[in-house]
């Protein structure tokens, strides 16, 4: 077996071996069934490549991400600021109006600052009631000095969500589902598969050769 670099897609077997394979192929009937030696049609090869790129693109976790506690940190800071607290404690207004007004103030204030969380905030809007419930937990975490991006907000709870991207020495590699060793393994898996199958089929007689089925059948 030798790879001819000038003709990389050509058969990998010697002429003698090819001749033996051809004789075998044409001279034997397997239960009355014969096999042709056609290649994959070109459009189907395109479809297979498209499948691979789609597989990588569609599985990548750009979708369905959960809200981290970090995106609400600014909400909490503003909630605990004096003007907002005044509105919330203003008993002259009904409860709902106070909430709405306070939330409007917070959102207005946030709109004036650039933040890397703007997109996620739009994805995961929060109500004043829920904010009030999670606020003390976020403050507590901030006091403890942890990275809020490792925590997610699940209903009324703020929960540590980073389990599998931490090295034994405590180094954090990633905080959300992102590129991980699963994708690395998947890339190698596909490459090794392609090489093996190409070598396997390249050892067959070239696909330009058509077996003559009239010999054994």
């Amino acid at each position: 077996m030798a790879w001819t670099l000038r003709r990389p897609l050509h058969t990998l077997t010697t002429e003698d071996e090819n001749q033996r394979a051809k004789d075998l192929w044409e001279g034997e009937s397997l239960g009355g069934i014969a096999e042709n030696n056609n290649p994959l049609p070109r459009p189907v090869i395109g479809l297979l490549l498209l499948t691979y790129f789609t597989a990588m693109a569609i599985t990548f976790p750009l979708y369905g991400q959960r809200p981290t506690a970090a995106i609400y940190a600014d909400y909490v800071a503003l909630l605990n600021s004096e003007p907002v607290q005044e509105v919330i404690n203003d008993t002259s207004l009904p409860y709902n109006e106070r909430n709405d007004k306070a939330m409007a103030m917070i959102e207005d204030a946030l709109a004036h600052f650039d933040s890397k969380y703007t997109f996620q905030r739009e994805q995961h809007p929060i109500s004043m009631d829920q904010l009030k419930i999670i606020a003390p937990q976020i403050v507590e975490l901030q006091t403890a000095g942890v990275d809020l991006e490792e925590y997610i907000v699940v209903g009324p709870e703020v929960i540590k969500s980073n389990f599998f991207n931490i090295q034994p020495d405590g180094t954090v590699i990633a905080k959300q589902p992102w590129w991980d060793k699963g994708y690395t393994v998947a890339c190698w898996w596909f490459i090794v598969f392609c090489l093996s199958v190409i070598i396997a089929v390249k050892r067959l007689p070239p696909f330009t050769w058509r077996p003559d089925h009239s010999i054994a059948h």
Partner: peptide, 15 residues
């Protein structure tokens, strides 16, 4: 389950 396992399974699942 480990996120990397889900990522791997998911790519292979499309394949």
């Amino acid at each position: 389950l480990p996120e990397w396992l889900k990522s791997f399974a998911s790519v292979e699942g499309v394949l």
